[in-house]
Every structure is written in C-alpha cells, then in structure tokens.
C-alpha cells in the first residue's frame, strides 16, 4: 500500500521578481525518505519551507497527507487558513534547521518538552519521561540539563531532532542538518537520522551528504535553478545520472 504524504504539482515561489521555484512536481509516499540535492540557490530549502508554510507558494498545488498547505478548498474557491489552523498543521510536521535554532534560554530537556506542554497542553509529568527517552535515543542521556550553548554543534542538532520528534510528527523535514557541523560531528547526526529512517518515518532531507543519500534515501531528487532536473532511486540518480548537470554537480561534490 502506498499512501501519498506530500504531493507537489507545479509549485512556484517568487521573492519579489526573483523566481526561486519554477514548477516543482514530486510526490513523497508515507514511510519514504527523499533526499533533495543540488547546488546552493537551487531552491531546495525554499521548497522544504513551503511544505510547512514558512513560505507561501505563489502558484501550483501542495498537499500534505491529502490536505492543502495553507488553504482550504470549498466550492471551487480557495480560502486562506487562519493562523491557528496553520499552527495546528505544523504540529504534525517536524523541522530541523541548518543552524539548529535551539532555544538558548532553556535546558536541552526543556527544549524538548516545550511544545508538548505548551502546544499539546500535556502535563509536565507525562511529558518529562518521554522527553528523557527521546534525548537518550539521540545519544544525549547525560546532557538533559545542559544549556544548548554549552553543547557541541552535533549535540545541539541531535537535541533539535529530539525536540521535533517530541510532537510525534508524521513527516520530518531536514534543512541541511549537517552543513553547519565540524566534519567529525556529522556522523553522530547522520546515525540518528538513519535510525529514524529505518523506523519508518517519512523524511525529506535537503543535504550535501551524498553518502547518506545513497544508503538511506528511497528517492533522490536533483534540483537546479528552481526545477527538478532528475529524480529516482539513489542507484540511478547517483550511480548513473542521465543529465549532464547532475553529472557535473556530483563530480564536484564527490571530489
């Protein structure tokens, strides 16, 4: 059974006169891991941010779990969603940022507990155990009470993943999660993401880690200049790219 989690049809996004996405069409099935590759400025991150409505698309259709992002459809018209509705939908989509964006005035544990307590109105007692389990799961069993700025980049990013998982999302978005990390810290974060992929989480990952894409992705999408150049299983896109643009990008990245 394949169920579509994310479907994009001709998605366009402009910033002023600068057209960043020029018609993106793709689908991500439930439980699938998709890696978005491409040079910087190709629109990968923008597309990711459109999925949880941090950016508004200008045209096309974008659905998550069968529901339009940012709009409601009725009698042939689109109605903009109220902020409350947008927030409710974001609860089900976890996002991990390049710069971690942990809340520096809270301990790691409080970072993880914040959204379940504030947004889902769960009690602190029932949340704390789950938060501790999540931190243990990402390998930070001894850092519960540490403040983010006292952690390494790799540790911060793993807290950020735990924070997103605390909301029990049905979809996880990763925006270059390892690009701001020292090389020796990348592995720990990728291990956590690999575990998550094996556990059946639907994931969309913008990354430059070709190795991760090769082993963890079900689908690899290569984007350039706001369009999808080619997509398919990693063996095909990474092993035998059809397009010249993909080949030259991969040869530069793999150097």
């Amino acid at each position: 059974m394949t169920e579509v989690m994310v479907r994009a049809e001709g998605v366009h996004k402009r910033f002023g006169t600068n057209e960043v996405l020029k018609g993106i069409t793709l689908t991500v099935n439930r439980g699938e891991v998709m890696c978005l590759l491409g040079p910087s400025g190709s629109g990968k991150s923008t597309f990711l941010r459109c999925i949880n409505h941090l950016e508004k698309i200008n045209s096309g259709r974008l659905t998550v779990d069968g529901e339009l992002v940012g709009y409601r459809e009725g009698s042939g018209k689109l109605y903009e969603l109220h902020e409350r509705e947008v927030s409710r939908k974001r609860q089900e989509i976890g996002m991990v940022f390049q710069q971690f964006n942990l809340f520096p005035h809270m301990t790691a544990l409080d970072n993880v507990m914040l959204a379940p307590v504030q947004v889902l109105k769960r009690s602190r007692d029932e949340t704390v155990q789950r938060a501790r389990e999540l931190l243990d799961r990402v390998g930070l069993g001894d850092k519960h009470d540490a403040y983010p700025l006292s952690l390494s980049g790799g540790q911060q990013q793993r807290v950020a993943i735990a924070r997103a998982l605390a909301m029990d999302p049905k979809l996880m978005l990763f925006d270059e999660p390892t690009s701001a990390l020292d090389p020796e810290l990348v592995g720990d974060v990728l291990d956590v993401m690999r575990d998550l992929a094996h556990s059946g989480m639907t994931m969309i990952v913008v990354t430059h880690e070709i190795g991760f894409a090769r082993e963890a992705a079900d689908t690899v999408v290569f984007m350039d200049g706001g369009v999808v150049v080619e997509s398919g299983p990693p063996a095909q896109v990474l092993g035998a790219p059809k397009h010249e643009r993909t080949r030259s990008f991969l040869s530069k990245v793999l150097q």
Partner: peptide, 16 residues
C-alpha cells in the same frame, strides 16, 4: 528570526 521559525514549526502560536 530562526528562533521564531523553530517555534512556529513546532506549532506554537504567535502569542506563545
């Protein structure tokens, strides 16, 4: 800005 974005992506309201 990233702080507000991270909080928004967790489903927090503007007031929160």
């Amino acid at each position: 800005e990233g702080q507000s974005e991270a909080a928004a992506s967790l489903g927090m309201s503007r007031l929160q």
